[in-house]
Design a binder for these strands. Structure first.
Lengths: 222, 222
DNA sequence: GATCACATTACAGAAATCTGTATTGACATA
DNA sequence: TATGTCAATACAGATTTCTGTAATGTGATC
């Protein structure tokens, strides 16, 4: 089993809960906790420098902001930063998030190893997840495993994401086209962009750009 | 002090945490708990019918959905339903939400008596809040009390909310105008609507409708 | 009653959106 | 090589957005 684990979670109670589960149900005792992303990153760096690396990171996604100024404000940044130094570290996300698109994104873009939804059965799920990840598996939350949601999901490529992002920032399609040309991203023709956006309308059943952005915001894609 | 309290919160751990605080720190022992809004409503109704009314409701805002089909899915509906039967019941919201606009809305529209943010100092805040509410005060979370945020906040009236809502659903301004006329909501002239939306652009520093909707979605106003 | 401030309304025009059709080029397959 | 498919592109138009100006109405104040 994992020998050394880092837990990043800002709510003290949840943090202690995770540690207790790792202790009692799995028998992991070498655990460090952090209430802030930056704090977690520092502990990770120290362990890495001391050649006593963490084998598993369990982290929340959203960290409440308070008086302490943080350079990292979300678990996503934390994961990216840590993985850039130690690519083989296993990562389990423990979060409130239950939107399929977003969870899917975590597995696809960040290559996380497991996901546990905060909720009524979090303890059982967490134990199963840690076990599974230790055995080298990718552990999806039960709500999404074998679920058509992940398969029938609308696939958005980088250009789609750029378009959604820029549109939500209020840029016109002409402005976006100019930006794309500057950055040598193709396609960047007028009609190609129009068609892409129209396809997004179809995918999300949106009536117009405003509706589209509202929908993807609700889905948590943006 | 309050003699009978109803706690609605879907996470068992948090639920127990609230009860423990009420027990240990305030000395309230007649407490009922509910993990679902509907369940909370039923317990409320039963107590009301039995003439053993609750004096205080402590509720979360968001309730995770699971296999049980619920008619009420948010604390907001629960509060409205309960207040429609027993208008003088005191209500404290205990939630993750930390967006000033939304919290402000709870006080203004729902007339809640207190608000406690889930977080690092929730215990202390909850105790102070229950005390304050018992003394007849309205208790804002410390982050917002005496804070300019509440005062400098952009004031949105019903029409503003309708416009934001309809725009986010992808309706054109012409369609919205027609709707407003049908429902006898004024103003509903072309230019009045245009001007309202333009004012929203100014308020939220939005470039266009799409940008506006993205901003208010991020702020949680929609 | 006169005046001022303010909100609603009407109208108008430039810009952007959205939806078509038609053409071109790249690529895989027979 | 020939063919079919798909994406990118060009172009066009009808609709909507967004921003002005000007006219009208309403309510408060002197």
């Amino acid at each position: 089993m994992f020998m050394k684990v880092l837990v990043a979670e800002d709510y003290e109670i949840a943090n202690q809960g995770i540690i207790k589960v790792l202790n009692d149900k799995i028998g992991i005792h070498n655990i460090e906790e952090a209430k802030y992303c930056d704090d977690a990153y520092l502990k990770f760096r120290k362990a890495h420098n001391d050649q006593e690396v963490f084998e598993l990171l369990i982290t929340d996604l959203s960290f409440r902001e308070d008086h302490k100024i943080q350079t990292r404000t979300s678990g996503i940044e934390l994961i990216k930063d840590i993985r850039s130094i130690q690519p083989d570290i296993k990562v389990i996300v423990y979060s409130q998030e239950n939107r399929p698109d977003k969870i899917n994104m975590l597995f696809e873009k960040l290559n996380i190893n497991g996901y546990v939804c905060k909720g009524q059965h979090a303890i059982k799920e967490l134990v199963a997840c840690v076990d599974g990840v230790y055995q080298g598996n990718t552990v999806w939350p039960p709500e999404l495993a074998n679920n058509s949601a992940a398969n029938t999901m609308i696939h958005l490529d980088d250009l789609d994401m750029i378009l959604l992002e820029e549109l939500s920032k209020g840029f016109t399609k002409k402005e976006i086209r100019t930006k794309l040309k500057k950055q040598n991203i193709s396609p960047n023709g007028e009609s190609a962009i129009d068609k892409r956006v129209s396809k997004l309308f179809d995918d999300f059943k949106a009536k117009n750009t405003t509706h589209l952005v509202a929908i993807v915001k609700d889905l948590g894609i943006l």
